Computed example of a mutant assay.
Amino acid sequence: MPHRPRLALPGGARIAVYVVVNVEDWDFWKPIVRQYVPSPQAVPVVPDVQNWAWHEYGLRVGFWRILKALSERGLKASAPINARLCESYEPVARAMLDSGWEFVGHGVVQGAMHAVPDQREAIQSSMRILRDFAGLAPKGWLGPGMAETGETLDLLAEAGFGYVCDWAMDEHPVEMTTDHGPVVAIPYSLETGDLPMMVAHHHESEVWLRRLRDQFDRLYAEGETQPRIMSLSVHPYIMGVPHRIGYFEQALDHFARHDGVWFANAGDIHDWYRGAGLG
């Protein structure tokens, strides 16, 4: 980082912030994607009703709180979406489209790419389904669980995806080489996501908000000499619940109180990076 030329974000911004709303479709008849409550006596169960219903609540209720919070502030999200959701939860997908959110590839159904029988077909189907629904091909991809195999990047480039969010390794975009041309890794703020903080590490909401403010404040200060990029990643079944949504709103309001913040989506950042001749 200290040896790079200074980046120039649009409008002379110090920091680019993009909101990620992960919208997932879980298979009721398969082992659950992730648990919030362990199964009784630690016995794996299918169907896992209480944990599947936790995710279902996010689509029925939590998503709409997050959509309202963003819409009231004039903000749009980048939404990694399981492509099957365009049919199985069409009102959610339609609301995202009508609100101008960016559709981001996220597999067909939620599950690690390592377990997909035909990864090429799953990636290409995701591209096709989202393009047909939205009328515009998605530019980017975030893997389910941010998981990739050794061939995932090549297959994404082959299918036409221009950027990925799986590689949380920098605060600037990084160009990655594939067999089908370069793919840009867009910065992703892994440790501030609601999933690792709330579900994996069991932090309280106040801790999540404080960490977001601390992250933003430091990047904003450093952005005076070298602009930075920060994501805010949430899930409807985690941050869309009544006791957490207010913290999400407070985080957005904290960012908005500062001048020199470019609220973008991941695709905007990719296009800026390419248009500036940086990759």
Rank of each mutant, 00 (worst) to 15 (best):
residue 256 A to N: 07
residue 181 G to Q: 06
residue 232 L to Y: 15
residue 167 W to H: 10
residue 153 L to H: 11
residue 46 V to K: 02
residue 54 W to R: 13
residue 196 P to T: 10
residue 43 V to A: 09
residue 255 F to S: 03
residue 11 G to L: 13
residue 144 P to G: 11
residue 214 D to N: 13
residue 209 L to H: 06
residue 14 R to K: 15
residue 107 G to H: 05
residue 35 Q to C: 03
residue 215 Q to A: 14
residue 131 R to G: 00
residue 147 A to W: 02
residue 89 Y to L: 00
residue 212 L to A: 10
residue 112 A to E: 14
residue 243 H to C: 02
residue 80 P to E: 04
residue 194 D to R: 03
residue 74 G to T: 10
residue 228 R to L: 05
residue 96 M to W: 04
residue 174 V to L: 11
residue 137 A to E: 13
residue 54 W to V: 04
residue 17 V to Q: 09
residue 132 D to T: 02
residue 78 S to L: 06
residue 118 D to V: 06
residue 6 R to S: 12
residue 195 L to W: 15
residue 119 Q to L: 12
residue 157 A to Y: 06
residue 187 P to H: 00
residue 247 Y to I: 07
residue 268 D to F: 10
residue 48 D to L: 06
residue 53 A to C: 07
residue 140 G to C: 02
residue 269 I to A: 02
residue 28 F to S: 02
residue 215 Q to G: 14
residue 30 K to Y: 00
residue 258 H to S: 03
residue 13 A to S: 15
residue 105 G to C: 04
residue 236 P to N: 05
residue 34 R to W: 14
residue 224 E to M: 02
residue 220 Y to G: 08
residue 87 E to L: 12
residue 22 N to M: 12
residue 119 Q to N: 06
residue 235 H to F: 06
residue 93 A to G: 07
residue 130 L to E: 10
residue 92 V to L: 05
residue 184 V to E: 01
residue 240 G to D: 07
residue 177 T to L: 06
residue 190 L to H: 08
residue 85 L to Y: 00
residue 194 D to S: 09
residue 34 R to H: 14
residue 275 G to A: 08
residue 111 G to D: 04
residue 257 R to K: 14
residue 24 E to M: 12
residue 103 F to I: 06
residue 259 D to E: 15
residue 201 H to L: 11
residue 167 W to V: 01
residue 200 A to C: 14
residue 116 V to D: 12
residue 237 Y to M: 09
residue 91 P to W: 05
residue 18 Y to T: 05
residue 182 P to G: 11
residue 227 P to Y: 06
residue 173 P to L: 02
residue 54 W to N: 14
residue 47 P to D: 12
residue 95 A to T: 05
residue 121 E to F: 05
residue 18 Y to L: 07
residue 136 L to I: 09
residue 108 V to D: 06
residue 241 V to I: 15
residue 33 V to Y: 14
residue 66 I to N: 01
residue 39 S to A: 15
residue 95 A to R: 08
residue 84 R to M: 01
residue 263 F to W: 15
residue 117 P to E: 05
residue 215 Q to M: 12
residue 279 G to P: 01
residue 186 I to A: 00
residue 194 D to A: 04
residue 133 F to K: 00
residue 124 Q to G: 02
residue 271 D to A: 09
residue 55 H to Y: 13
residue 7 L to E: 04
residue 17 V to M: 09
residue 278 L to W: 08
residue 55 H to P: 00
residue 196 P to A: 04
residue 3 H to C: 04
residue 209 L to E: 15
residue 4 R to C: 09
residue 244 R to W: 02
residue 43 V to Y: 05
residue 35 Q to M: 07
residue 218 R to A: 10
residue 240 G to P: 06
residue 194 D to Q: 05
